[in-house]
Each structure stands twice: as C-alpha cells, then as structure tokens.
Design a protein around this nucleic acid. Structure first.
Lengths: 139, 139
DNA sequence: AAACACCTTTGAGTGCACTCGAAGGCAAGA
DNA sequence: TCTTGCCTTCGAGTGCACTCAAAGGTGTTT
C-alpha cells in the first residue's frame, strides 16, 4: 500500500499534459482527481494508466464530449459495458475509414511524386500531363 | 477550344465546395479563376482536375498556406519541381507517420474491445484489469 | 419590373481543444 | 517572512478553416 501520490505539477510532466489541461479535462469530466485534506489534487499510478488510455482514444479521433460520455458510463458500472463497447467500435470503425481515405489520397500523392521523378529523369515525356499519367492507373 | 465553362454556382456543385469556399480559396491563393467580360468567374474541366488534386493534398493533411506556397512554386515553372516534390514528400511522410500512430492507438482500442468481449463471455476473469490484460501483449 | 446569379469589401460567427492570465487565497518549507 | 506550489472563478485569446451576412452593385432572363 501507500502508493505514490503525485501533485499536479509532477503528474503533468509524467503524462505530458500541462496542469492547465489536466484541470480542463477534469472540468470536462474526463478525469477525476482525489484531494488531500487541503483540497490539493493528487494522482496515482492508476491515473497515469487512465490518462494513457484516454490519450489512445483521443488519438483515434474521439472527441472530448464522447470521452465524457464514456466516463459517465464507466461510472455506472458493468451494465454499461455493451454501450461502451459499441462506442469504441464506432470510433475504431471511423478511424479505419479515415485511414482508408488517407491512403487513397496518399496514393495520388505518391503518383504525383513519381510523375515529378519521371519528368526529371525524362522517362515521362514532357508533354504528358499528370492527369493523363494518372489515367493509366485507372484501368 | 470550346471547352465548357462553368459559373461558380454550377462549379460549386460539381466539385462539392460551396461558392463561399471557392472564393475563399481564391483569396487564399489556392485557385485562380478566369473572368468573363463582366468580371464573372468561370471555370473549366482543368479547374475541376486542379480542385480534385488540392483536395487530395488537403486530405493528406496539407495546410492552406502550404498549398498556397505550392501554387506559387507551380506558377514559377519547372525550375521549382524539386522543391514541389520535396513538399509532397514531406506531406506524404507526415501522413504515413500519422497513420502509423493512429494504428498504434487502434491496436489498444481493439484490445479494449476484446477485453470487453472477454468479460462478457467470461473468458477473461472478472478480476483481471484491462491494464493486466494489456501487459500480456507486451512481451 | 422583378427575380436571379453573380460581383465586391468587410467583418463577425462557428467549433474544437486548448492556453493563459488576473485576482485573491491557503499551506508548507527555507 | 518570503517563496513556491497549489487552489478557485472567470473570461479572453489562439489557430485553423471555413461560413455567412450585410450593403450596394451589374447583367441576364422571365
């Protein structure tokens, strides 16, 4: 027992979020903090893990208000697992769709780079436009 | 010769950007428009292709001011091809890094979903925390 | 004549997630 | 005692990319 307690300054460095942001997240209902007898916030290893997890969720595009909802569900106990799972699944599906779209854009970008290289090398005729070049891949 | 000319209203529907946005992009130096004798903007098939291309660039995370720079270089002719190529390469590298990060976050999210499923199925003991469950994958 | 689609400049509003500062206060350590 | 680090509320500012409206104009179509 006697887990290490971190005050906001130290914790902030640990998790890479400013003290401002930590208070802001608390206001927004993303995190809870415990308080000592003087009302000073303290955090534990458990909080580090939680921040880590919400950063994963944020990293996949979850918004703060969705995260807030998730936190509320979590506080209501195991009955809400199905809903939480569904939320995560949706975020995951959306992120995967974003990746697919990004990759589609990247493909064109890569082709443009190749086209520039072709111009530079003269392996693509000066007269061939990028548009014409691109068409070749669409069949 | 005799290419179809589109006024902003029609063009806007064609490319999926509002007339407001098209004028805004023009202000920002992302697109040019030709004008008829009354000063009314018109666009051609070439402009459709250009908008398509900048949407690919935007889709990979390029900012409007970078895009503006790119357009300026393009206007300066073939001497700037190397710099333009480099810009695209950077955007591509950044986007690929973003995808890699996103996938890393998605992995954790997927594991959380699996963990929920395990709880629901009772294939994961009630006492096992997600943190403990996650650890198993880190070796 | 009225409606419509366009033109201009200018400036305000939106959404999201911070980011910061002011003002005033408490408690522990040097 | 002074400094440091924390606390509170409140409100303003930032960055990005739009998004829209006002106010006053031109030219074409019905």
């Amino acid at each position: 027992m006697g887990e290490k307690q971190y005050r906001i300054g130290e914790f902030s460095k640990l998790v890479g979020l400013s003290a401002y942001t930590l208070r802001y997240y608390e206001d927004q209902g993303l995190i809870l903090s415990q308080r000592d007898e003087n009302g000073v916030r303290y955090y534990t290893a458990e909080d580090i893990r939680w921040i880590g997890f919400i950063l994963h969720l944020k990293g996949t595009g979850m918004r703060l208000n969705e995260l807030k909802r998730y936190v509320q569900l979590r506080a209501q106990g195991d009955d809400t697992i199905a809903e939480r799972r569904a939320m995560l699944q949706k975020v995951k599906d959306d992120a995967e769709a974003d990746i697919a779209e990004l990759q589609m854009h990247l493909k064109v970008l890569g082709r443009k780079i190749d086209w520039y290289d072709g111009k530079t090398n003269h392996t693509i005729p000066d007269t061939e436009s990028f548009h014409d070049y691109l068409q070749k891949f669409n069949k």
